[in-house]
Amino acid sequence: MFFQQLINGIVLGSTYALIALGYTMVYGIVELINFAHGEIYMCGAFVGMYLVTVFKVPFVLAFLVAMIMAGLLGVTVEFIAYRPLRRSSRLAALISAIGASIFLQNLALLVMGPRPYSFPSPFTPKVYKTSLVIISKVELIILAVSFLLMLGLTFLIQKTKIGKAMRATAQDKDAASLMGININRVITTTFAVGSALGAAAGVMVGIYFRSVAPMMGLMPGLKGFVAAVLGGIGSIPGAMLGGLLLGVAEVMGAAYISSQYRDAVAFTILIVVLFFKPAGLIGRFLQEKV
């Protein structure tokens, strides 16, 4: 049973990791917790579901279009809700983020209605059995796609020009802009990439659990945020590690302690980790810029 639960945890954790990446990237660049990220995840899932069920688009294409649309949505939210507040207090931007989250949630409720929508799985259901674990095809696909996306992101940040610009902006915005980096473009790209990853997670969760609903972003959004903090907010490997760890912790907590305290176990781990490593597992404290 242990290995089965471990697999369950890793699958869940890899979706948390994708969501956490969106939080951590945005935080790394603009030091803002983008609370609307959970809603972008939800919108991505809805776009994917619509394309597949109504327009009969092949799944892979729907997946990519959902990522692009969510990227555009992320950029729009940044432009409307965060950019005008960039020079004001951080608290104002945070409240604006919460506002954007509530706005998108209620908009989805109004447009789509409160009920959950079925998201038919594009894959023929298939289960692979070994002596230790049972794993389904969807789970394998989620693991593979998450891994590829994380690899792609690492490449983007470490090896490309825009990635270099992102890292420079994260270190020191003013110095970066003095070096000729277009800060606005970097921020826009960050939001687009982070949101696209969130949408990827949304679509995959949608097919995994066969449904999408307007409120689906609430808990995963929160968990993704927790995963980002756990790994060390602002750190990209931290978000991946934090997501996986949170997923496994949650599943193990439910399996071996009590399913009633599933979330409580996960959050207790967060508190304990932050107690000993206040900057998160891989996070570093940077000197506050004056």
Partner: peptide, 20 residues
């Protein structure tokens, strides 16, 4: 006897325990 929360989506841990 296993519990879950409203709006939970993942029931694998509980089901794995129940299965045994």
């Amino acid at each position: 006897v296993e519990a879950f929360m409203d709006n939970d989506e993942n029931f694998k841990p509980q089901l794995t325990s129940i299965q045994t």
